[in-house]
Design a protein around this nucleic acid. Structure first.
Lengths: 218, 218, 218, 218
DNA sequence: CAATAATCGAGACGGTACGTCACGTCTTCTT
DNA sequence: AAGAAGACGTGACGTACCGTCTCGATTATTG
């Protein structure tokens, strides 16, 4: 709880006693991810017992650093968050976003996708998990997305007064829905059509700007 | 070997032995729903032990009729599915769908919504659950939605060759996303705007029929 | 409870309703014995469920006629009591008894012996069972044994004022002990030696030291 | 890599991990004995659930150390075996053995006797139990008995070439029989008479007839 | 360099719920 | 009225993990 300000040059005040083992920390997070990445091994099936054994670590070591399974999974998820999800700047909002969406879908369809569905699944009965998902995954991406959309607005591709959040939900919602409910394929074609469907709607052309502009009250 | 003629139960060959107790069945489903409807009582916290005790029923009776917790919950949910989720026929597709979406959101925001999130949450590590959700809840509603959309097409409100499933995902996806990730409010205004955003084709102007027409190949 | 005396010619006043099925009764007792006769299938492993199923009978039919497992087994045992256990009259007490003991040991070593050990085993926690064993098996045989011993007394082979019960326990006790504890073989040789050991002791004087000397071979 | 030299615990490699709780072990064995010592609480009525609860112990702890109920009971019995069952050395085989037999009968007639009958009873359908009884109770006592008998042989009280096991069965068999079948009393008088009946060889020839005549009182 | 202190692995502990089995009772239709 | 069929509420089974707790061993800082 003591925050050292300034220079750490010579006197890095370390706590006495054996320091935390970085090897153990990594092994625990890795065995957690490894488990979640397997199909049909959701959060519910994950056991601390297994994680510890797989990591070659005592159970107490897990509990010493993570208060519960959810915290462990949230941490493991955060440490796995891909850095490949960026928005390019092609000059066309539609293309910028379509490309990022394709990357997202690729992740969702990979083994890493199981980690996402595990965290969203478990999050339905443990709000700390969805919170972790929003804070560590969703929001950072939204910030980038806002910028991309604003570029489009500046360029005149999109109307002003656009409810950015709504547009983004309109874009990504169907992807999350298919990802979680699996009632239909999460194909690249679907992604492209989805992107066009939504962004064509908000193209200047028309008059709909009013219905989409953010309600002043809220 | 007396054969009752004219008996209406002629073909209703009863199985021998004591018949299944309807009282027990109802009590089990009810105590399941009751539990899930409480906040923070997710699928994971639900125990068969509790369900049986609450229903005044032996555990074995639960296991006799439902192979696992997932099946029980799916059944309980299905049996509880409100019959208020219908599509009216107002003469306007947009209105028809908007009204049904509002009903859906109302359910999602009610205590019954917890059951849905419990199912979809647990379904992420138990595919039988999402399957049950799709079969018993999603598909029946889709069938009605198709009809509503087709009415709109016939009326000329919507273009022909529309990929109905995609349109429906575009409509409902954002609702499910906000419901499950809770990053933003699931308000009636949002629902209305969402409906208009997707179905704006109704109006003259644009009509991006090409991008939405079902890919011939598929 | 009404005992009809005399002629049953025309009006055998039977209780109304369907009469008890003799077939069922036999099938139940048989499947009970059949089970107990198998090695390692003691009383504890016997289930009414199995007996009923094996006999092709409803469980309730078993419970209608026998209040509990013990009563059933006691009945089954009684119905199986062999009639081959008699004492011959060879003119020598020792031979008379030795022959009967050999027959007894033969039964103990046969599959029927398992029924005896089952009933004595279960009897340790259910006194009705040992009672059944004493009344239906032990006592009838003791009556015969008394007669045999008295013949020997009359013949002068045995002393007067003999405690018959003690002598019989001295004779049979070791057999029951080996039968139940299985710490040593229940061989014909053992039986012969046992018979001689005890009866020589009670002979007027002799001192049969030889019969007690250990068999050289063993 | 410091090796302690001269350490007496050199070969006493302790197993890693938390050591077994002696408290739990004792509590489990005690609650087992306590239960069995009550009349009509046979082996069959004993539940691990009860033992664990009574001992203030998790069920798993019981199962961790004893594979089944039989092993537990055998252990509990063995641990309770009174150390009063020894053979004195009075100079007379008959007296040595008679005294030990009286002690045994005293145990059989006490509450501890229920444990013995529970073990032998249940042992009839679970061979591991009788085996445990033989190994942990019977055989150790036999070893002492052999020594006592051999002393008698050396002293000339008993003939050489005696089948020790048979003599011991002849001595103890009737006691076990009366203990298990309860057809007659297990009185101190019976024990004395039984001892004399079998070991009369000691005496020149005669006189034992009186001790075998039935006690007038009874 | 020894003392102190925190972490490590291992694994036993008291619990809770699991899913199964048999109990003894009941309800139904058939004989 | 008794039969077979079989569902019912009950309760113990033996197992799997939970999260906590000793252990001895290890690895740092401090006196």
């Amino acid at each position: 709880m003591k925050v050292k300000i300034g220079d750490e040059s010579c006197a890095v005040k370390r706590t006495p006693g054996r320091p935390r083992s970085e090897r153990a920390r990594q092994a625990i997070l890795n065995s957690t991810l490894e488990f979640l990445e397997q199909r049909e091994n959701g959060f519910a099936n994950l056991t601390i017992e297994y994680v510890a054994a797989r990591a070659g670590v005592g159970k107490a070591t897990v509990y010493r650093w993570w208060p519960n399974k959810a915290a462990l999974v949230a941490d493991a998820f955060a440490s796995s968050v891909t850095h490949k999800l960026f928005f390019p700047d092609t000059g066309s909002v539609c293309d910028d976003i379509a490309q990022q969406m394709q990357q997202l879908v690729k992740i969702f369809r990979s083994r890493r996708g199981h980690v996402v569905s595990a965290i969203l699944g478990a999050g339905q009965s443990d709000s700390t998990l969805v919170t972790a998902f929003r804070d560590r995954f969703l929001k950072p991406r939204r910030v980038e997305a806002y910028a991309t959309l604003r570029r489009g607005i500046e360029r005149g591709e999109l109307p002003k007064n656009l409810d950015l959040d709504h547009v983004l939900d309109a874009l990504y919602g169907p992807i999350y829905m298919r990802f979680l409910i699996k009632h239909d394929g999460l194909t690249p074609e679907f992604v492209d059509q989805q992107c066009q469907l939504v962004l064509r709607q908000v193209l200047p052309c028309v008059k709909a700007s009013k219905s989409l502009s953010k309600a002043s009250g809220k």
